[in-house]
Amino acid sequence: MNIQEIETEIIEEFSLFEDWMGKYEHIIEMGKSLPVIAERYKTDERLIKGCQSKVWLHSEMKEGKIFFSADSDAIITKGLIAMVMRVLNEHSPDEILDAKMDFVEKTGLKEHLSPTRANGLVNMIKQMKLDALAYKAKV
């Protein structure tokens, strides 16, 4: 699936929930299913500074695709990371740079993009795109 298709899939998935609880339970479940990042990557250097929850991000380039791994100390943030990873992971730098990422808004999770939420989500998306840009420059 390309990035747009994955975003559409997530939007459809979320449209099934009638209330906020279902939505958040789903996010929390996704957070729990996020593969654990290797401890050696949980360094301050890889820390994306948000005010309240910590986010660590690591990326590698293999055969033209970027493989991300990430973690957070807050489970809802972790769930949001899992969603972003589902969309951007294992795609080429160009695809990642072109990604609209409007699923966050369309799933009714727009408030998490607000800088006051300070959960590092905005910064994480930015960092993933910066990583993509860096890998692109190397190619």
Partner: peptide
């Protein structure tokens, strides 16, 4: 439980 997670659910 991370305080941030608690804050988000309470806000809902």
């Amino acid at each position: 439980i991370h305080p941030y997670d608690m804050g988000i659910i309470l806000d809902q």
